[in-house]
Write a protein that binds this DNA or RNA. Structure first.
Lengths: 180, 180
DNA sequence: CACTTCATGTAACCTGTTACATGATTCT
DNA sequence: AGAATCATGTAACAGGTTACATGAAGTG
């Protein structure tokens, strides 16, 4: 039951924004680091319980009367800072099912890979628009974390644009040139 | 013990290159799709056993006298083709510990995020060189799969370059400009 | 003969997802 | 009153990693 690892620190970090219920925590995660992080309730609640057991988080009934409000303790903040100082794990199992299907694409029906790539492009385009919004939103908010938050959004933008460029390049290269 | 999912298809796909031992399978995976896929022995051998149980793979003692040679059966090839036709799972939990540390960077000691970024840049630079080699290698080999293989390498190159650009941009933005 | 590489497998564990179960507020 | 939202949690399972255990065949 002792859930550990990065989820713990994602939670501790989010609580630097202020006390929150588990539910709000998940909403906040989705709205800020949702483009590169994700937490499910099945992970979140046990993690909060474990963090509280370890004294890194304290909880009490929320002033709103609804749910439990979780606060970062000084020990929790220390744990966060210790973790921040450590080099991130040079991950990772970057497994891409799309690339796997491209790699074995010769064995698929003609047009299959192209269809997958076009769907991928659609998803990327949506994601790109979301990131543009998010970028504007962060740029307009003069929070102390602004530069850091913007950096993560810019990362998403750089990678999404690169992936879009690759998609176009690949679609062009896989489509045999037809003379007019 | 019935391991399933994408690992199965990565294995089936790899066996289109010819019969192989489990050991060779892993080497081949590392050498071809290693930049976006990974299999551990603990996953590979049970998967091979399951695939054989299901009639998608057949095995016999290798002609070299060493190990078991696994061959794709017609049913296995059909299974691969069926899987190829399906839209790839719109993943995924793209979790980045580096980005998490950047996002919460304000709470770290000054210079910490910069240090992480520089290490990241080092890893990317290495990866970039590897991909350049791989690209040349694939470009020189007139295999029937060439265009597809090249596409996956190009993906790696696009993303690595984008990540490198982001790293530089972010390092510049986090370093306060010092007047001369 | 010792060392490395090729080779196969199992067991324990960790991390995380999905589905289920439940219920209190607030809004319409 | 009914629906949507806020809220918390558990249980089962899936998928994968790490470490362990073992040994044969080739290389220096």
């Amino acid at each position: 039951m002792a859930r550990s690892s990065t989820t713990r620190y994602a939670v501790l970090g989010m609580l630097t924004l202020g006390p929150m219920t588990g539910y709000a925590l998940r909403e906040t995660i989705a709205g800020t680091i949702g483009h590169f992080w994700h937490e499910s309730f099945g992970q979140l609640y046990p993690t909060l319980a474990a963090l509280e057991r370890d004294g890194l988080v304290a909880s009490r009934a929320a002033r709103t009367g609804r749910g439990r409000e979780h606060t970062l303790t000084p020990a929790g903040y220390d744990a966060l800072r210790t973790w921040l100082a450590q080099a991130p794990a040079t991950s990772s199992s970057h497994r891409s099912e799309l690339l796997l299907k491209v790699f074995f694409g010769r064995h698929a029906e003609p047009g299959t890979v192209e269809r997958h790539l076009e769907m991928h492009r659609g998803a990327l385009t949506e994601s790109r628009a979301y990131l543009a919004d998010l970028e504007a939103q962060v740029a307009d908010d003069p929070a102390p974390d602004q530069a850091y938050w913007l950096a993560t959004v810019r990362h998403g933008i750089h990678l999404t644009d690169a992936s879009l460029a690759w998609t176009s390049e690949t679609l062009a290269s896989l489509t045999p040139e037809t003379a007019p």
